[in-house]
């Protein structure tokens, strides 16, 4: 197993709140969207980081909040479908930006509270 985010994979990720986790995944998604069809190396790195962080969040949800599993596993599959598949679920750049922005905002609200 070779996580790019080693410290996070070793437990740091689970210290973040769910919104913080999703907000961080959103940052990687944003980078992947930015590099998609422009720079293969940068895109692949961002896409890989997206999937590994989402993988860690699914692991976290399995232990701490299983009700979130349905959505998280679907997000994992749908992201793959959008970036490297046939986009059969018909998502878009805007869809993914909006989806993850909501978590980013929620994370900021938590911090500022």
């Amino acid at each position: 197993m070779a996580f790019q985010h080693k410290q996070l994979a070793e437990g740091g990720w689970e210290k973040l709140t769910f919104f913080e986790q999703m907000g961080n995944i959103g940052s990687e998604v944003s980078r992947a969207l930015n590099w998609h069809n422009k720079d293969k190396t940068n895109f692949q790195a961002a896409f890989n980081r997206t999937l590994e962080l989402l993988w860690l969040t699914i692991n976290w949800a399995q232990k701490n909040d299983p009700v979130k599993l349905k959505e998280l596993t679907r997000v994992y599959e749908a992201l793959g479908d959008y970036f490297v598949g046939e986009n059969q679920y018909q998502t878009s750049t805007k869809f993914w930006q909006d989806y993850f922005l909501a978590f980013g905002i929620a994370a900021r609200r938590e911090t500022l509270r």
Binding site: M1, A2, F3, Q4, A9, F47, N48, L51, E52, W55, T73, Y76, E77, A78, G80, D81, V84, G85
Partner: peptide, 12 residues
């Protein structure tokens, strides 16, 4: 399957 894409397990 899309769920098989696992960069951290070298399955790209």
């Amino acid at each position: 399957s899309m769920i098989n894409i696992r960069p951290h397990f070298d399955n790209l």
